[in-house]
Amino acid sequence: MSTLNTQYECDGCGACCRSKLVDIYEIDILRNPRIAEQMIPLREPGFDGEIGYLNCVSNGGCVFLRDDNRCGIYTTRPSVCVLYEAGSDDCQQCRLDAGISRLEPMSLTKA
Rank of each mutant, 00 (worst) to 15 (best):
Y25L: 08
Y53S: 07
Y8T: 07
C16F: 04
K20A: 05
Y25P: 02
R70P: 00
V57L: 15
S19G: 15
I100Q: 02
C62D: 00
S88Q: 07
D97H: 00
R70N: 10
V80D: 04
L103W: 06
E9Y: 07
G14V: 00
I24S: 09
N32A: 13
S79V: 12
E26T: 10
Y8E: 05
T3M: 08
S88E: 02
G72K: 03
Q38R: 14
E85I: 04
S2Y: 01
I51F: 12
Q93L: 12
V80I: 13
R34I: 00
A86N: 06
D67M: 12
E50H: 08
R18E: 02
E104I: 07
G61V: 01
I40Q: 11
C94D: 03
V22C: 03
V80A: 14
F64V: 00
E50L: 04
R95C: 00
V63G: 13
Y74A: 09
L108K: 14
Y8N: 04
D97F: 01
A36Y: 03
G87I: 04
R31L: 13
E9R: 15
P41N: 06
I35Y: 04
T109V: 11
G52D: 06
T76I: 05
L30G: 00
A15Q: 03
R43W: 05
D67V: 14
R34L: 10
F47T: 09
L21C: 05
S58F: 00
N32S: 13
S58Q: 07
N5T: 15
Y74F: 15
I100T: 02
P78W: 02
G60Q: 07
C16Y: 03
D97L: 10
V22F: 08
D97E: 08
D68T: 10
R95K: 13
E9G: 14
I35H: 08
R31A: 12
P105A: 10
M39L: 14
Y74M: 09
S88Y: 01
A98E: 11
P78E: 01
N59K: 06
D97A: 12
P41Y: 06
D68L: 11
C71S: 05
A86L: 10
D67A: 15
D90W: 05
D89S: 10
D67H: 13
R77E: 02
C17V: 00
L21Q: 11
A98T: 10
G60K: 03
Y84N: 04
D89Q: 09
R34V: 04
V57C: 12
C56Y: 02
G61H: 01
K110D: 12
F47W: 15
A15T: 09
